[in-house]
Design a binder for these strands. Sequence first.
DNA 1: CTGAAAGCGCTTACAG
DNA 2: CTGAAAGCGCTTACAG
Lengths: 337, 337
Amino acid sequence: MAATINDVARVAGVSISTVSYALSGKRPIGEKTRQRIESAILELQYQPNAGARALAGRRTYILAVTEPLRPDTYTPAHMAFVLAAATAARAYDYDVLLLTQDEATGGLHRVTSSRLVDGVIVLDVLAEDERAELVRSLDVPAALVGIPADTDGLVCVDLDFEAAARLAVDRLADGGHRVVGLLGHPPSVYARGSNFPLRFREAFVARAAERDLEVRLGAPERTIAGVREAVAEILGPDRDLTGLVMHCEDTIQMRALDVLCEAGLRVPQDVSVISAASTFDTSTFTPPLDVIPLIPAESCSRAVELTIAQITGTVDPRVELIPPTYVDRGSTAPRRP
Amino acid sequence: MAATINDVARVAGVSISTVSYALSGKRPIGEKTRQRIESAILELQYQPNAGARALAGRRTYILAVTEPLRPDTYTPAHMAFVLAAATAARAYDYDVLLLTQDEATGGLHRVTSSRLVDGVIVLDVLAEDERAELVRSLDVPAALVGIPADTDGLVCVDLDFEAAARLAVDRLADGGHRVVGLLGHPPSVYARGSNFPLRFREAFVARAAERDLEVRLGAPERTIAGVREAVAEILGPDRDLTGLVMHCEDTIQMRALDVLCEAGLRVPQDVSVISAASTFDTSTFTPPLDVIPLIPAESCSRAVELTIAQITGTVDPRVELIPPTYVDRGSTAPRRP
DNA sequence: CTGAAAGCGCTTACAG
DNA sequence: CTGAAAGCGCTTACAG
């Protein structure tokens, strides 16, 4: 059988409370005592029992991560967030319980009210997301990675997609480009109400209007044919488009580059291209693309931080937007006369 | 505060042991008593405390799922397995704790010896996998999805990749094809020691020899250029290849189809193509491909089943191979004279 | 700086 | 069919 705190106390010749305090560091321990306890722990390979710790300490050191992984979702990006959340949690000595699909709300309810988890990280947030409602009503420590329509009372973290869109538009406008395109996600993604594609697109259109640019929008299917069609449409019959922002999955972006190449359009000589809010590595593309990166580790570690802060204290509801950055890889150039 | 079993007992007018037994079903309860308990639970929105249940019952109803998600890994497929494992676990009222990367062995040790989990599901098993060693020495209920080199004392479940390879070869050989190719994974995947690509390739070569076929192997990089090169090589200078089996990621398969199309080769008239051990949907490809599917839900639910069987009783070590099936979508044809 | 003890909320023999 | 009670292995006031 596994060693208990009683075994450690006996071997070390101290009381179990001393062992417990030595472990938690919640009160000062004499140097010799500490050493005896440490060697006893080593000798017995003692690991505190998680259930007992949870029961007595009212903390499980587990966070629930809810990621619905809907059929239509683009797994690599979502997986990157799950992974980032798990990694961030471990940095705080928390483990991660994975809640998927149907378990979205039922599971959240179950694991919080049974005190299986101390807090919740909500990923892939929709504009109208029942998990947001639930988190609000449950009043459990939680952070959303993403911004629902109603953020009242919630703690949300996300890349500032609006700023990212403006950054991309400004880059092109500053380069003298007059006709710019946005190659976005498949139509189903927008239809689903996923919030960041919408936020990005709206800000893109708004900024382009401010900068007095002509805008063309595309929402291609993932197939080669779909991408080809959308790109052709964005380029326009006269091929007068000179600036392209891509806010979509890597396969679509790669295909779009293929299509530009086929059409004899060079990047950046003929078309300036920017990859926006991308979780993947655009430096291996042909050609490497300028990118406004979306870094899962950033938002997830902040979300974990804020959730744990709620567990140990109080945090005011807030929406934290992470400012975007621009990585230049030479895929944009001033418009040629 | 959340209601406890004491509250339920008081409201229902029974003892807490009766409530507990009513919940677990471990002893018969009078009809009226049961109803009073049920309505008390509903009224109080009672949820048993997970920590207390774990401590007293010596069961947490949590399984650890270890999936290293190495940098090189192909996320969608691996994510499909994580998802399948989580879904299968929920079907048995188990939750899933996700262990990633560095946590591979350290985390496994931690969560098992602290009794945080009742068992372990090991995904993405390498031929030489330290997690297999650990599971063996820990003697914890566990199942591996995949087959390590040394299966001694372990419970392993997987698609029968050797049989799948033979099935594919036989299909082509029976169709009169004499020169067949295997478009496999990127070189790094084989180098890593991931076991199923190796198992598949070896069985493919062996069966082709038995059937007296000429074999050409390709291990393309993921880029368009990489795929183009590998396909060209497999086709041969005389383009005498007429049968192609693809055992690789969907992007590579899609690109290979593009390359065949570019080369003016029709499927199946000029080349018969089979997608082998694929977790994705090949019916949306152009053209739709015959496939020997790899169904994560199958192996994962069996793995969960076998792990839970170990938790509640005893299971003999074993290697369970799931027989492959062939789905005909018209991408193969007899060789034309 | 350390210890004895109550208590966290369950499960499960033991008893009837 | 049901109840009283021990006990799971910790944490944390309370006391010194």
